[in-house]
Simulated assay, not measured.
Amino acid sequence: MKRTGISGMKFATTMRGKFGALTAVAVLMVMPTYGDHDAAAKNLTEAAPATAANARVGAIFKGDLDGGHFCTASVVHSSGRDLIVTAAHCLPADESEGGKAVFVPAYRDGAAPYGSWPVESVYADDSWNEDGDQDSDVAFAVLGPGTDGGKKVEDAVGAAQLFAGRATGQAVTITGYPGDAEEPQVCTNTSVAYGDTQQRIDCPDFPGGTSGSPWVVEGGAVAGVIGGYEFGGDDPDVSYSIVFGQHTKSLYKLAEAAGDPKPAAATSTAVSPQPAAAGESVTPDQLLTQSQSQSQSQTPTQATNRPITCACVLP
């Protein structure tokens, strides 16, 4: 839990429902690059420039800007245009849902240039919720209307795709908010494998508060978030992430279905398209074609028009 920036913050490893049985696959959308940084400047941490690309990364605050920021998140594309990704240990249900936490993209020096968005619901895997499994330390959060005229967060700052597979051996840029800093920090280095399910990167000075910082690969896709092993690592110079795979894609799809506007109602049988190869994006047309030819026995939870107050999914 070192990777959070507010000391004494409580973390729950239960609640937010039954996800383990659901196997729907996520639609991965190609979106513009973000995380501007010179990839040649490896293993060097510096202040991130205030660019439109970096605006898609933001700080998570407790309640409002007066509550202090304690984690980092980034905007990922969704049909509801209202989704962020972060570490699961950043947003336990009792400390986040229903506006208890807010996301502030491009936060800098006490200012919220695009406004702020309340966290309405949080989605994490059962293996995290029930057991605190460090191989499942990723979460998606649906945001409510922003303070700047009710705008959706993706309409305000844009979004990124997800990268399915290992980022190891590639140049990765991480951008995050240390708990004691008022501007984001950025570093680029080569990611390496850490066991079968995790990856690590050497970047100095990524202490508490940088949990949830996106790992951005060439082309702008998010291939991980600081978290996983020891909640992102107990050394500020070494950071970890889980490898995004089928469970992450399924979790993304579940969170996207809760967004607004709601997608069409699901059929009575869930589909299980063939996953893309590691690092490969799946287009909506490909997903549709695969879905029409395959099915399985699991039944997904159907979206409703009721406000989401709990990310509970019944088996």
Rank of each mutant, 00 (worst) to 15 (best):
V217T: 11
G195Q: 04
R306I: 07
D260V: 13
G17L: 03
T309C: 10
Y114D: 00
S79C: 07
Q296L: 13
K2T: 13
H69Y: 07
V225I: 15
K253E: 14
A264P: 05
T283H: 09
C71P: 03
I308R: 05
S96A: 15
N129Y: 02
A277N: 14
D109F: 09
S291E: 14
A87K: 00
V85I: 15
A24I: 08
V102D: 01
G220S: 04
F231W: 15
V27Q: 11
S7V: 11
F103G: 01
A311V: 03
D237G: 12
A160D: 03
D82P: 06
E154W: 01
T13F: 11
A87D: 02
Y240S: 04
P307D: 13
D202K: 14
P92H: 06
C310R: 14
E95N: 10
P145N: 06
Y252A: 06
G150T: 05
R16N: 12
S7Y: 10
D38Q: 10
T248Q: 13
P113L: 09
Q302S: 14
D196F: 09
A47T: 14
P32L: 09
R16G: 02
T45K: 03
K62F: 07
S78D: 04
V186M: 09
I84C: 04
L28M: 11
S121Y: 01
G209V: 08
A47V: 13
G227K: 01
S272H: 12
T14F: 09
P105N: 04
M29I: 14
Q296D: 13
G245S: 13
G149Q: 04
V102T: 07
A87I: 03
P145Q: 06
T197C: 08
A264W: 01
P92V: 01
M9Y: 11
T14A: 10
S79M: 13
P145K: 03
T188Y: 02
I201F: 02
A171C: 08
A26C: 11
Q199T: 08
T197F: 12
Q198C: 06
S291A: 15
R200A: 15
S127N: 14
D109M: 10
V313M: 12
E95C: 02
Q170W: 00
S293C: 01
A12S: 14
F11K: 09
K42M: 13
R81W: 02
P49D: 11
G245K: 08
D133N: 14
A193C: 03
P315G: 03
T190M: 01
N129I: 03
A59K: 02
